[in-house]
Design a binder for these strands. Sequence first.
DNA 1: AAGTGGTCTAGACCACTAT
DNA 2: TAGTGGTCTAGACCACTTC
Lengths: 242, 242
Amino acid sequence: MISRNPSLTDQVKAHIKEQIVNDKFEDGRIPPEAALAEGLGVSRTTIRDALAKLEHEGAIHRRQGAGTFVNKVGLQIKSRLEEIWSYEQVLQDHGYTPSVKVLSDELLPADDEVAEALGIAAGAEVVVIEKVFLEDDEPVVLTRNCIPAGLFEEPAHGRDDLPLYEFLEEYCDRRLTYYVSEIVPVAYDAAQAKKLGVKKGTVGLAFIELGFDQNNEAIVHATSFFRDDLLRFRIIRRKSGT
Amino acid sequence: MISRNPSLTDQVKAHIKEQIVNDKFEDGRIPPEAALAEGLGVSRTTIRDALAKLEHEGAIHRRQGAGTFVNKVGLQIKSRLEEIWSYEQVLQDHGYTPSVKVLSDELLPADDEVAEALGIAAGAEVVVIEKVFLEDDEPVVLTRNCIPAGLFEEPAHGRDDLPLYEFLEEYCDRRLTYYVSEIVPVAYDAAQAKKLGVKKGTVGLAFIELGFDQNNEAIVHATSFFRDDLLRFRIIRRKSGT
DNA sequence: AAGTGGTCTAGACCACTAT
DNA sequence: TAGTGGTCTAGACCACTTC
């Protein structure tokens, strides 16, 4: 029936997700795992892996002994904090048509905090790209990315408007795999407020984060500032055997 | 070797985690899955499930073809946003010795927002418990929980200082299984500032959230306010095939 | 070429829920 | 008691990294 890559599990997941969003399951009840497995000609393990992913992102709810059900509340959640990858995508998910404006793209000596986080010498050069994401000329997100200059094999001319992970893949040959993000409430200073189109002192959310590549090396220090009146983040918090 | 409950997977996970934190693996390299499976007398699936959980919480890093490694950065993260369950635990993880003070415990008519979120009639009665969590008499977290009065089989006398999930299990016979949380930056008003021991207008983080039970029913509406100078949240953000 | 993690299968049994 | 999801096994093959 199906080809590899994306994996069988991901194809099954997409298949079930599609049926969910198109409301194909009566009473919000999803068929038993055994029935799904037989119906799609795959093993129950594959079905379970797909359902586990759907449950994790809040689309379904499973109860041992009872069954698997569509989770209406979870389906409504846009911009799940732990899954944010590109701000263009976040804005699109909110129904906006996003655009991006590069405010600056400079080679600067790293300040101490950034240098330590990236594991480079204090004062070593970093490429600093400042961007703002807008919808209909209204700023929603302001970002500042610092990338060690040593990572570049050649100067990156003019493509600094690319999503960061594409930019890093293109010019540094590194794949961004995860961020460790600190969530900080801030009152915007004059400079930030101007770039975000709000009054000085307006309250907003900031991410201070470090991005790592496939070899678990820190490759980017990023700070992002958000318009709380235009974009809010949600997250599903579960009990977990830490 | 081992008994069920906690599951084999969780026992294996705890076993490996212990070796990680005690630095038993040379060069931060974790043995191949096949070796772990043979060594512990379990199947490779069980090992993989345990490693998947450890990777998800940031303790390890896996690379196809290369191996499995200890993730020093991830290990240092306390208070991972998506895993917070009791604030006592959060404060303990930060090395504080927490205490809790109940500010109020009343039966009130629900306001419209809370009533709609909980799916009860506007003005229906809710039990409202306001608590503050402290370390050395210094407030760190302020919470306000609203529980539909109809969930109580008997009045809950005096045990409102219990962690919320224990309280709900004890008096309402419901197990809190997950929260959907909205993350909001705020400037504290006079009343909030006084309870948190900060100046009016201080910036902080708030959670506005809805807690669900094992049957996916909303059972509690909660708001929490934090002292940003004493407690910060972190999260690992990964690419995920949504 | 050897060794690693990633995907998938087929099947067994357990724990829990409904009726 | 029947049916559901949860755990675990043993084994096959694939994709990728390392040497």
